[in-house]
Design a protein around this nucleic acid. Sequence first.
DNA 1: AAGTTAGCCAACCGCATGGGT
DNA 2: GACCCATGCGGTTGGCTAACT
Length: 308
Amino acid sequence: MGRQSCNLVKPKLRKGLWSPEEDEKLFNYITIFGVGCWSTVPKLAGLQRCGKSCRLRWINYLRPDLKRGMFSQEEEDLIISLHKALGNKWAQIAAQLPGRTDNEIKNLWNSSLKKKLMKLGIDPNTHIPISEKEERETPSLLEMEQAFHVKEASRDQFLSKPIFDPLLLCEFGHDSNHSTQLQQIPGPNFGFDSIIPNLANIDGSMAETVFCSDSTPRMSSFLCNEVGESSSNSSNVEMVENRTFSWGDDKLDSVFRCQYNGFKCEELKPSLWPDQVQLRTPYSEAYNSYPLMSSSEDLTGTSMEFFQ
DNA sequence: AAGTTAGCCAACCGCATGGGT
DNA sequence: GACCCATGCGGTTGGCTAACT
């Protein structure tokens, strides 16, 4: 139905943290008269708060049956299994944990449990092991061809062409402070167009909306466009992590990250090298696996090629 | 010591729902 | 059925604090 929030109806109402005096007034009122009509509680209890705020304060903090302190391992396990079954139904989850509030559980989930699961390699949203999930989601070559609209190209042509993803980190150009420099991929030989609309055309040329000069890495061009900047200055692109590749044993163990005006824009996670490379873009929360990648031995000032 | 960053938690906000008129 | 109102729920925000630079 949509209604005005209580503070708009009564603009003089107090907001923010509760003082001990307010807590005492509310606690005394509820212990004497019990929980009834919340909208009348503030007036009767002598509080400059809206009923909604009083209800929340009581439920989340003042209620005498609340359990204080850290969550036990058993409670955490229960929350995880309940979340697996119920999803973000915090009230339903809280109903299974006496003395715990939905808000408390939600906060625990967002600040701690999510990260714990991710560390264990489990997707906190689906509760599926991430490796298994990626396996399910990694497209076949045929799917990739279809997904990227390589309609005219024959399979052989497709395979022979370097695969180009405009968000790949090597597109960020070089960092003079580091020994390894990654520069432009050959322009016209893209195997498929971008997942990003209007960035690269099917023939491999860049879309017209990209305005930065040739000397500017295309990723930053894209980002410049994305944020509607009018300047082609790429100095806003900052390499926040740029460790030297280890190519000697065909193993790549570093992760690159870049920021654009503080916005983390992508990571390249080559843990599956040499069979796959995982890439995260601003458009994908999860890493997507892309098959194969090869490179010339000396990356300095050279291109990287992506092929099957 | 001062500034910055990250984590945590309390509280707010908007929307959905259900009951009463 | 339409409207009003109270309550409940889940997502988000803001502020405090500790850790880090």
